[in-house]
Write a protein that binds this DNA or RNA. Structure first.
Lengths: 227, 227
DNA sequence: CGGTACTGTGACAATCCCGTAACGCCCCGG
DNA sequence: CCGGGGCGTTACGGGATTGTCACAGTACCG
């Protein structure tokens, strides 16, 4: 299921929203400031960002604008949360690159509905769509992988690893990032374990010759190449 | 390696934890009460604080709350150690501003793993926008360099060096500044080492003719020219 | 036009990092 | 209860990377 980054400094609201989203089946991380959020985005590549307008330090709207400008969130949609209800603010928010705008007070139900709507709009078949690269195909629904038509067998962890790589192509991830994204945020595992699963994944991909897509970047981590 | 402040009044636990952390390569200081810890923090600026819930005098959780409120530890993560295992306590602990929570009894291995996880979550992983100059392009996200479309290969240090130069163009840096910014603050290496890596970087850039962008300023250092 | 301080260059040993194989553990199904 | 598959950890070895040095080359001074 999609993972959502909630950027909100007020604990009460944060917990209410987090609970509602988690009940709806989303994975939720949170940050309390723009700086926190920066780090969290780099670490976990959320599918959607819920952003409070009023934040300590850099304001939500400035942050949204900066994200769009830096193209960090090329494909990550942003929803603004705010107590300000004016038409003018709404426009400012959308201008800044937000994909939607939810005025406080809002009901958890309404928020979840908007999140769903935005995810549906932005990623038509959120997360569950098959991915294909250079003849290597992965289908999350049937949980199958094939290379040039031939079946490819692998374990569950390798499957999740490959899925993550294929949905974030051509980016280097260090071992800690992979652990967070594929194993889960609060799981405590040695970093070298990543190497072993990369190796197992490569071995699984070798028969169809797709193993060279998964590249080592010395001193940095691994990358699923698109070239 | 990171330095850790361990606040724990029971000698047996303290020694076990300290040994485990030191074996994992961390520098460990310890304090036996909140007052001790106050002094130690001001003195040594640890990267992480391990805090026992039950302490003589001010309790660990009060101390954690005070630290966060006084913003002494705005960016120093805190892990609470405690015998109390209730869910309610856990929430109280995280509410007080702790970054993680380890219930006793715990294995040294688990503790070390949690310390690692918190540190890697908190310490920022820099990833940024691509930079381009006169056909030379560097993308920190995919960790790739290309000159006029052709791939350019180099080692990790050369990559960091080039990234630094490209994000600070047309400025002269002496060798000490480059060591600080590219190698890291308190690393001792010979200044002439910079020369060698500049040379290696030039060699890597030579095939596409971009090596002349990296200029020597005699008696001052090096500069990445924009002209 | 020397001389001198500074920089470029190639080689080398130490170290680091990664690929690989092997091991033990846990969970499940038979 | 046993067997097997998946998983995380560890040890080892080889190759890439790194820091240092010695020497060659070069700019700048008087």
């Amino acid at each position: 299921m999609a993972s959502i980054l909630l950027v909100e400094d007020e604990t009460a609201i944060r917990e209410m929203v987090a609970m509602a989203l988690e009940r709806a089946g989303y994975r939720v991380r949170h940050a309390e400031s723009a700086e926190d959020a920066d780090a969290a985005i780099r670490l976990s590549q959320p599918d959607l960002i819920l952003l409070d307008w009023m934040l300590p330090g850099e304001s939500g709207i400035d942050f949204a604008r900066r994200l769009k400008r830096e193209r960090v969130t090329r494909e990550i949609p942003v929803i603004l949360l705010t107590a300000r209800g004016e038409e003018a603010d709404r426009i400012r928010g959308l201008d800044a690159g937000a994909d939607d705008y939810v005025p406080k007070p809002f009901s958890p139900r309404e928020l979840v509905a908007r999140v769903k709507a935005v995810l549906r709009r932005v990623q038509p078949t959120a997360g569950e769509a098959p991915v294909e690269m250079r003849g290597l195909m992965l289908d999350p629904v049937s949980h199958r992988v094939s290379g040039d038509g031939r079946k490819v067998e692998m374990g569950p962890t390798e499957f999740r690893l490959l899925h993550f790589f294929m949905t974030h192509p051509d980016r280097v991830f260090n071992r800690a990032q992979l652990l967070d994204n594929v194993w889960g945020a609060n799981v405590y595992v040695e970093e070298r374990t990543v190497d072993v699963h990369v190796r197992r994944l490569r071995k699984a991909l070798a028969p169809t010759g797709h193993d060279d897509l998964l590249q080592t970047v010395r001193g940095a981590g691994y990358r699923f190449s698109i070239d």
